[in-house]
Design a protein around this nucleic acid. Sequence first.
DNA 1: AATTTGTACAACCGCCTACTG
DNA 2: ACAGTAGGCGGTTGTACAAAT
Length: 290
Amino acid sequence: MGRAPCCDKIGMKKGKWTAEEDEKLVSYIRHNGEGSWRSLPKNAGLLRCGKSCRLRWINYLKDDLKRGNISPEEESTIIKLQAELGNRWSLIANSLPGRTDNEIKNHWNSHLSRRIQSEMNKGAPPVKKKRGRKPKPKPTKEESGSGSNLKQMESQSETTKETEVTLTSTSSEGSTDKVLERTCSGEDGLGVIDFDIEDFNLEDLWDDVDNNTNITIDNNNNSSSYNIENDDLWWPPVLPQIASANSLVGLDDTILDQPMSGIESACQWEDDVDFNQWLDTDFGAGALFD
DNA sequence: AATTTGTACAACCGCCTACTG
DNA sequence: ACAGTAGGCGGTTGTACAAAT
């Protein structure tokens, strides 16, 4: 049996809360206390779903909420607890007074998970200049701390040296295609190779997969060769590396031998596998360093 | 100057659990 | 024991906004 809706949704308002609605909600809860969310909107004169009222109160209107940027100390707590507890945001929020599960979840999704991934990619900086919306300037004293790790990483990786990377594929018939050749800057040859996915012949590479393909990665004098059939565990992770964020991060064995948990099941390369579709899945670029 | 692109975050959705009658 | 309900949770979406093109 399906669950009854939490409230009658007909005529209910959705979207951003207005100052007037906030005022009504705050005023009602101050006089009557929290709870009875189902009946609250009607009693408070709000055309909102009870759940929506609850969320608005818990996440934004409650008195004891801490405003301002999440401090580096709070960030490390989040990172530590996320590693221990997984995405149990409300549990994590219990350890951060004044922070809500929603706030922590959002911060994790838009800042921390990305930063952690970047750190796992050997501290490689973003290839492209960051675009998009700037974090809201939140009026706190601790502002300077937030994001400082990333800045540090960026400046560290600027002290790099040049390296050459050549990626070739050789089919069983013996023909060799050079699919990528780039000079780039990188620390010990492990830096970011900046190129667009359109820049090399991915289709040729892809077509070769069924042909007992050899892939050679020539990273300066450190050349590595892989046979797709014999070493197909290597193959899946390298594709997202090539494609992700238009950059190729690292080419050493440490990177290539990242744990394959979760990816293995995606290694059954059928004829009808669509690379781009695969990239969009959890087993694609996003899961490379899981 | 206009458009595109990517980010941040508020809000919603659907599922689950606990509670109640 | 069961059904109905409320509250809570995590995942996802929508959109305003700013930087890049």
